[in-house]
Design a protein around this nucleic acid. Structure first.
Lengths: 157, 157
DNA sequence: CCCTTGCTTCGAGCGCACTCCAAGGAATTA
DNA sequence: TAATTCCTTGGAGTGCGCTCGAAGCAAGGG
């Protein structure tokens, strides 16, 4: 559904579905009046303006609108995309893979299958990572318990 | 309990406790006959020999025994340490922080409090990371659902 | 005795994801 | 209008965590 932000060819409904899934992702300005400078977007996303320009250069951002003088004017759909990219980034997905996903989006609806596959694979990796981290928590708990015991013992004597 | 690998001053029992918590961490050779070359350890841990030497250089490894010709001879306690470091690495902890922990271990028993604190902080971070990832899984599920629906719709027509 | 394999050191190089710089144009505020 | 602040570009630089290369020593097999 991010594809539509580029191709404008996907039904509006998909976008609503997304907002609803991502939780509290209210747009700062309503549809139609959504124009943001790069520094505003930097503020919203926590990314630097440098990074936003870099994302565009490497193809991780769809082409962003420009003002008549050539300055970037981000729109709500760009914020949505960045929000999703942020999620992918959290998974530890390499930027190159995110670019690959962006390319699939640009390529149009015929890539649904490949996009889905990529997301499914990512999901699997994330679940594995969660399991790994839970295992690590167990080890940490054990060690923390040891230090607590040691502390107790030293108090007891 | 990693301290003892360096100071040899902590009761044996602690080590057993550790092995048991980490699950299947059987040592390839029994205590007393535990001598491993760097490439053996590389094989066990998945780290490269280069990385193992680098760990030692930056202070992330306790001093490793040497053969009479100067070659490293790793012991079971070194494997244990590397196993734990691997866990810390999985959490995304920067190497510098792991080195800090190693320094605390080298500094002796008086640093129990600081070590515990560091582990508690790490534990908190790991739990936060798990929550983040779970949130991401929800987003992925939503998107995957969208692609599944799109596929269905295209089949239906 | 030579050959291969594996180890040693130090220091340089790499891939990733930014991060920053310089020089100059554009928008806003006094 | 002037000053200030923000934006543009291309390219260079940074920090992290390795990763590799070169030169040389040591041990075992044919």
């Amino acid at each position: 559904m991010w594809g539509m932000t580029l191709t404008q060819s996907t039904p509006i409904g998909a976008d609503r579905t997304e907002s609803c899934a991502s939780g509290p992702l209210a747009h700062p300005r309503p549809e139609g009046a959504d124009q943001y400078t790069i520094s505003e977007v930097a503020g919203f996303t926590g990314l630097s303006a440098h990074t936003l320009r870099w994302y565009e250069r490497i193809g991780l951002m769809p082409h962003v609108d420009r003002s008549h003088t050539g300055q970037r004017r981000f729109r709500n759909r760009d914020l949505d995309w960045l929000h999703f990219v942020g999620k992918l980034r959290l998974t530890g997905m390499p930027v190159a893979d995110m670019v690959r996903y962006a390319e699939l989006v640009r390529a149009g609806d015929s890539t649904y299958g490949q996009r889905r596959e990529l997301l499914v694979r990512t999901r699997r990796d994330v679940l594995a990572r969660i399991a790994e981290l839970q295992d690590t928590v167990a080890v940490l708990d054990h060690k923390i318990g040891f230090y607590a015991d040691a502390h107790e013992a030293s108090e007891r004597h």
